[in-house]
Write a protein that binds this DNA or RNA. Structure first.
Length: 293
DNA sequence: CACTTGACCTGTCCGC
DNA sequence: TGCGGACAGGTCAAGT
C-alpha cells in the first residue's frame, strides 16, 4: 500500500520519535518478517542507539550507532507504529485507523527501547520485511544498484524522466511508471493520479508519447507526490503514520478508487476502472483517450 | 533481452 | 449467516 509519500510521511514521523532511543530487545513472530539470527540481533542491535532515518524509494533505512541499519519495506500492508507508555489507541477517533492495543494479530516485529517505549512493525499480509545489515553493505544490495532516481530531487527534470521511461519504450506508460528501476517510489495510486493529471491513457505505449506528454506528466507526477506528502499520505485500508494516524490524500484524489464518480474536469463523465499492466486502473474516459499505435 | 504473468499472504467485500 | 470467488496500494521469480 505505501508508496513514496506514505513512506516519506512515516520517515518524518519516526525522525521525530526514534533518534536517541536505545534498543533493548527485539521479538518477531515470523522469520520472513525479520530473517536475522538472534546472535546478530544481540550483537548489533541490542544496546544500539537510533540515529537518523532515511528513505530510498519505498524503503526505510534506520541508522544504528553500531554501524548497522534496519531496512524496512512495508510492501502492501506494513505499518511502523511507535508507542510510548500507553499501547492503546483512541477507539472511535476518526483520525486513527488502529484501535485497541498493540501488539495485535498483525504485529510481526516488536522493538523495545530502554525507556519502555516500543516500535511495532505490523503487516497483515506478511509481504513486508525488516532486516538488520551492516550500513556499508546497503549501497551494494541489488535493489540499491537498480532503483531509479528519486522523483522529488531537483535533478529529476522532465528530460531525465523521459530518458528513464523510454528504457521501457514498448510497454505501457503505466507499467513503466510502476517499475522501480525506472523511477523510484511510484505505485498504483500516483501512477493513476499523475496520468489523469497529464490526460494520458495508461495503456499508451511509452514510444508513442511526445515531449509535450513527458513535460506535462513530469509536472503532474511531481505535483501529486508533493501534495500527498503535504496531506500526510493517502489512507485507504492499512496505511497509518508513525503515530497510527491516517493520511488524508485520498480525499484529494481525482480518480483513484473513484469509479462511478464524476471526473473533476468533466461533470458529465464518470470515472471508469479497468485493468492495465495487471493492476486496477482508474481513468476519465473523456480526458484519457486511448492512443492508436 | 524485453515484457507479462503468477505467486507470495490475509482479510474483506460482493453475489448467491 | 454462510460460502466461493475476486480483489487489494508491491515486488520477485518464472514464463513467453
Amino acid at each position: 500500500m505505501p508508496e513514496l509519500p506514505e513512506v516519506e510521511t512515516v520517515r518524518r514521523g519516526l525522525s521525530e520519535l526514534l533518534p536517541g532511543r536505545v534498543i533493548s530487545a527485539e521479538t518477531h513472530d515470523n522469520p520472513k518478517s525479520f530473517p536475522n539470527a538472534p546472535a546478530d540481533v544481540e550483537q548489533f542491535m541490542n544496546g544500539a542507539t537510533i540515529k537518523e532515518i532515511h528513505r530510498r524509494a519505498k524503503v526505510l533505512i534506520i541508522e544504528l550507532s553500531s554501524n548497522y541499519v534496519l531496512i524496512v519495506h512495508l510492501k502492501m500492508t506494513g505499518q511502523l507504529v511507535f508507542r510510548n507508555g500507553d499501547m492503546r489507541f483512541g477507539a472511535g477517533h476518526p483520525s486513527y485507523s488502529l484501535v485497541g492495543e498493540l501488539p495485535d494479530k498483525s504485529t510481526r516485529v516488536v522493538i523495545t527501547f530502554t525507556d519502555g517505549s516500543k516500535l511495532f512493525f505490523n503487516d497483515q499480509r506478511k509481504f513486508g520485511w525488516m532486516r538488520l545489515m551492516p550500513a556499508v553493505e546497503v549501497p551494494n544490495i541489488d535493489f540499491m544498484q537498480k532503483v531509479g532516481p528519486e522523483p522529488l530531487e531537483t535533478s529529476f527534470t522532465w528530460q531525465l524522466m523521459k530518458d528513464r521511461l523510454v528504457r521501457r519504450k514498448n510497454t505501457s506508460i503505466k507499467a513503466a511508471l510502476l517499475d522501480q528501476t525506472v523511477i523510484a517510489g511510484v505505485g498504483n495510486i500516483y501512477a493513476d493520479e499523475s496520468l489523469w493529471g497529464a490526460k494520458i491513457h495508461p495503456a499508451t505505449l511509452v514510444r508513442n508519447l511526445t515531449d509535450k506528454d513527458f513535460q506535462v506528466l513530469h509536472k503532474a507526477l511531481v505535483d501529486v507526490l508533493k501534495l500527498s506528502i503535504e496531506k500526510g499520505g493517502s489512507t485507504d485500508r492499512n496505511y497509518v503514520d508513525a503515530e497510527g494516524k491516517r493520511g488524508s490524500y485520498l480525499t484529494f484524489a481525482n480518480v483513484f478508487r473513484r469509479e462511478g464518480q464524476t471526473c473533476p474536469r468533466h461533470p458529465d463523465t464518470k470515472i471508469v476502472k479497468l485493468k492495465v499492466a495487471g493492476r486496477g486502473t482508474h481513468i476519465c474516459p473523456k480526458c484519457q483517450v486511448p492512443q492508436k499505435d
